[in-house]
Write a protein that binds this DNA or RNA. Structure first.
Lengths: 313, 313
DNA sequence: ATAATGGTGACAGAACATGTCATCAACCCA
DNA sequence: TGGGTTGATGACATGTTCTGTCACCATTAT
């Protein structure tokens, strides 16, 4: 086998088995220990973070992150990666922030000057508008990791009404909406699914003792929702423009039905406690929505409208 | 020079000068033509898209995109790239869509199985909510390109009121907001800066004849705005919650002032034609905003509130 | 102490890369 | 048409690099 190919395969092998001995690889590749040693040194020079210990039970290790074999990207692909990461820059906290930065700087370093200019030019010409929020969400990575691996976390949460509580949760998924990060999770304290705002989670750490539930295929599906307490049936007709505005609201998705002609309707149970919120929401929709029930929501809306009329008198 | 190094340098050289002859490179690297030919063949096999023509004035070319020298990424960096691109998936049209996809598939191919699993797991666990809109914006790449290079485009635009028009524009910047793409541009027809919704731009092609203006440092700055026709002074007080909601609205940014305590005010000129829109907006803000002037906006708001009261009676 | 492990240097021989040459095939231009 | 330019390919001797072997050192767990 030519040396170049061997180096590639060596890199892959080394990444697969994170610990190994020189003799092992020598046998595997059918070359001498000496050659493997020389190869490993070259890999080191190429950036693979190798670490070795002598003595019995010693051996080589790939330290920290494993490395992918070198990949040749086209300039356009590199630009696309810049674009994608650039698009997210308004999110104050993101998982993988450091990693994106280091990946981009690798691209940047290997790029000829004119492509750099192109990218620098683009940075000022394109943007994704997202409301910038003050709140940092320091625990995002922990939450995401727990969601992927389905582990239980012990968190300190400061809820809307500023009560602080400690509870065990098992994250299901994370989503960013309107500048905030939210986490859908099973809450062992409330014994049901709840949504947490990530910037209100002060601390989060894995709870190794707690047994995770089998949440099977509960995932990102938007139909995921807590069973409301004291449910009230909400029904409303939406014009086409009304549908468009409602489609942007994640929490509304389970209730929303869109007809072929673009109009639609809202139908489903909502917790009675949320009625004030819905009042505001329907006022915002103006004449794009026609509320059918519940009557008490109509009353609330009338009350607010009257109040506003007075303010604007 | 060892062969491996020579191949690297050859790749860079070949990328710099997009057209070259074998003899040139042979002289430059101090090896024979035969060797260069063999090397070029290897580069080809490594994925560099080379194309050659025989005969006088023939020679080699790097076809289509140029290729970066192979870069070794860590697994975490690859995952970060997946994350960034995944975040954008709800945008139905994006510049560099194809390129992102091909870059990701390169990462994916070179990844050991467990990382693939991790990424596949993550895909269902994290999301960025953006309203999905129906309208495609087929011309995004052209617009972005024109913005970066400051070229004039000839576009067919279908404005709100469904009039179709052809006009020359010089794009300044692009931004995505709330699921739609917008393009700030100087409009030669209206002789001023205008904002175009990209999905309403049916066609766009470079107009080589037209002389671009020197728009110098007009860039993404949010303060960029057309001088309103028939300006009317708009003033309003905002509570803290009101400020938070207004911060999400790009078009409002030039008028918005935030105080230290989190409250704020809106102050500035707006076109009279936009008043109906503002009426709706202020109704949506409910009691989080207190409108000071203009009086005619107050009247309009009262009218709408009364109308809604009637609807909800 | 002993054995297991990594690390280094020297050197002959094996494997590979290179240069030279010959030949062919397109293609342009006069 | 013919001569010049350029790429493409094969053969082979030669030169360079890579590899295996061996000898030896250093470190450390048992």
């Amino acid at each position: 086998m030519p040396k170049s190919k061997r180096l590639m395969e060596l890199m892959m092998t080394v990444n697969r088995k994170r610990r190994f001995k020189v003799q092992e690889l020598a046998d595997e590749f059918g070359v001498s220990k000496r050659t493997i040693l020389r190869d490993l040194q070259e890999l080191s020079e190429l950036g693979v973070p190798l670490y070795s210990e002598v003595g019995p039970h010693g051996g080589y290790q790939v330290v920290r992150e494993r490395v992918l074999p070198p990949i040749a990207f086209t300039e356009e692909e590199a630009v696309a990666m810049f674009f994608a990461v650039h698009a997210l820059r308004h999110y104050s906290s993101l998982p993988f922030e450091a990693e994106s930065a280091s990946a981009l700087s690798k691209f940047y370093l290997h790029m000829p000057g004119d492509v750099r200019d192109r990218i620098d030019g683009m940075k000022h010409r394109v943007d994704f508008v997202t409301p910038t929020r003050r709140g940092d969400a320091p625990c995002l990575s922990v939450l995401l990791d727990a969601a992927v691996k389905q582990r239980v976390l012990l968190i300190e949460y400061e809820s809307k009404d500023e009560e602080e509580s400690r509870r065990r949760i098992q994250p299901v998924c994370l989503y960013a909406h309107n500048g905030f990060w939210y986490c859908n999770a099973y809450c062992f304290l409330r014994e049901g699914f709840r949504v947490f705002r990530c910037d209100r989670i002060r601390r989060a750490e894995p709870d190794a003792d707690a047994k995770p539930l089998d949440l099977g295929d509960v995932r990102l599906s938007r139909r995921f929702a807590a069973e409301p307490r004291e449910p009230v049936r909400l029904r409303a007709e939406l014009s086409r423009a009304g549908v468009q505005r409602c489609e942007g609201e994640l929490w509304l998705a389970p209730l929303l039905r869109v007809r072929e002609d673009g109009s639609g309707l809202i139908d489903g149970g909502v917790p009675r406690g949320e009625l004030p919120f819905f009042a505001e929401f329907f006022i915002g929709l103006g004449s794009e929505a026609r509320l059918i029930e519940p009557a008490e929501l109509k009353t609330e809306i009338r009350r607010r409208l009257a109040e506003m009329l007075e303010r604007y008198a």
